[in-house]
């Protein structure tokens, strides 16, 4: 229990440290900074998690890994819903995203949501990139604490 709290509090502090900078330039780039942090963490984390796994057979298999094992490691639960259009777009829906549940359960503080989702987006992008998939990850919140992560795979 205590270790989860530690991670949450640290995450919140990193967010407020980066987002509440007095410098105007820093403010504009704060979201991308958080995303870059998440990318680096995701990249190394996925390497650790898959050290005993063989190679995944396709993209969908990789996504399932992200939804189950990866999310379990990060937030002690699985993604609630995974959808795809079979053309490289995947939507991961978490109905009770851990970092948002304590902030609000409704529309209050909606404008703050992107701050707390930037690093998770980076985490997913980093993990996928570690598994050889280049992607763009965006997040979307309609009412807290539910949120959707959209993953768009970039074909090279």
């Amino acid at each position: 229990m205590a270790d989860e709290v530690l991670f949450e509090l640290l995450h919140y502090e990193i967010v407020s440290h980066i987002c509440n900078s007095s410098n105007e330039e820093d403010k504009a780039s704060s979201i991308s900074k958080l995303e870059a942090l998440g990318y680096r963490i995701g990249l190394s984390l996925v390497e650790r998690l898959t050290k005993d796994n063989p190679r995944f057979k396709d993209d969908l298999d990789t996504m399932k890994f992200i939804c189950k094992d990866f999310w379990m490691t990060l937030y002690k639960k699985q993604i609630d819903n995974l959808r795809t259009n079979h053309q490289g777009v995947y939507v991961l829906q978490d109905n009770r995203f851990k970092l948002l549940t304590l902030i609000s359960q409704g529309k209050q503080y909606m404008d703050m949501a992107p701050r707390y989702l930037a690093m998770p987006c980076g985490l997913i992008r980093g993990a996928l990139s570690g598994l050889g998939i280049v992607s763009v990850v965006t997040a979307e919140v309609s009412a807290m604490p539910a949120c959707k992560f959209q993953i768009q795979i970039q074909r090279l």
């Binding site: 949450e8 509090l9 407020s16 703050m112």
Partner: peptide, 9 residues
């Protein structure tokens, strides 16, 4: 503690 201390907002 749950809803104020742990809430960054």
């Amino acid at each position: 503690v749950e809803n104020v201390i742990k809430n960054p907002e």
